[in-house]
């Protein structure tokens, strides 16, 4: 074998660093969307690597539904301090208070879809012309067709049938005033790649990803952590279980899985043998078969 070859993680890393640098070079006012989840943590790590020894030359944006795990917020704040990055928080609560959005009612109420409005408002308010996100093509079938550089119109909408061709590693970020781009530097990573890379690079992650004991209820086949934001129905009984989270989002729709994987190595093993996609635990995607495409068209991540 030639000595000039990169293993798959280094090749993906190299591709993502290239994309992140393109964003910094091509746009005037980019931002990195940071949720506190593992994908955005890997993105932060890649951005750090891409510009070191200079600081990351763009701020981070957290669209905060207000329904967070405390651990996520603590972790987020510590990481921002370490990276010296300016964090902007777009608050869904404020969008609700202003009357820009109306909160869903009922036991399945989630603020997940409301994030779109807050996100678009935050982008407009700060005049961001490129928003980088940690979405991956392997997550969901509509995302499988997403570009690295995804053009959005004046209304922040995605037109999947009319996407710009994207060839080689040439990325066209040209746009008119008022339009912006969503950029997905880790498009080609899979859940497995993310975990392997976290192990390889020794990246710190919130403990929510590791198995721990937590009170949960089972709803529509998904384990939800009990909290002030969840209305427990009559037929539901909270139980203590050993669980971990495969994705971390809004507490009302992020499902846990039963697991004993207490360290990263165990997680890699678990991911290798698992038979359900990670978004299988997301009740927001279960609403309909094209739930993700519909949300994306409106300007969701």
């Amino acid at each position: 074998m030639s000595k000039y070859y990169l293993n798959h993680l280094r090749e993906l890393e190299s591709e993502s660093m290239f994309v992140i640098r393109e964003v910094a070079a091509q746009f005037e006012n980019p931002v990195l969307m940071f949720s506190g989840g593992k994908d955005s943590i890997v993105m932060a790590h890649l951005a750090y690597k891409a510009f070191y020894p200079a600081k990351i030359p763009f701020p981070f944006l957290h669209v905060d539904t207000g329904h967070n795990f405390d651990e996520t917020i603590r972790f987020r704040d510590a990481l921002m301090d370490k990276l010296g990055v300016n964090l902007i928080v777009g608050s869904v609560q404020e969008s609700i208070d202003r009357g820009d959005v109306v909160e869903e009612k009922g036991p399945n109420a989630s603020r997940n879809s409301l994030q779109t409005v807050t996100l678009l408002d935050s982008l407009e308010k700060h005049k961001f012309d490129a928003a980088m996100g940690g979405a991956r093509r392997d997550e969901e079938k509509a995302r499988a067709k997403e570009r690295f550089f995804s053009h959005r119109d004046d209304f922040g909408q995605w037109d999947p049938k009319n996407q710009r061709p994207e060839l080689w590693n040439i990325f066209n970020g040209k746009k008119n005033m008022g339009e912006h781009f969503r950029i997905f530097p880790i498009s080609n990573w899979t859940e497995m790649d993310i975990w392997q890379y976290i192990v390889l690079e020794d990246i710190a992650i919130p403990n929510l990803y590791l198995a721990h004991e937590r009170e949960v209820i089972e709803r529509d086949g998904v384990l939800l952590a009990t909290s002030d934001f969840i209305t427990i129905r009559e037929n539901e009984t909270p139980e203590m279980k050993m669980v971990r989270f495969r994705t971390i989002g809004d507490m009302t729709c992020t499902g846990a899985v039963e697991s004993t994987a207490a360290n990263l190595e165990d997680i890699v093993q678990e991911v290798a043998s698992t038979r359900i996609t990670e978004r299988g635990g997301r009740s927001d995607d279960k609403r309909s078969e094209t739930a993700m495409e519909d949300r994306k068209k409106q300007g969701y991540f």
């Binding site: 093509r137 067709k145 999947p160 899979t190 094209t290």
Partner: peptide
């Protein structure tokens, strides 16, 4: 599995490039 967009499913044709991922112990 590969036809991700609503229009593609309705028309039973593939409109766009879709990226798929799999791995064996040897390669990704």
């Amino acid at each position: 599995l590969t036809d991700g967009l609503k229009a593609e499913r309705e028309q039973g044709i593939t409109i766009d490039v879709a990226y798929r991922y799999f791995a064996t112990p040897k390669r990704k």
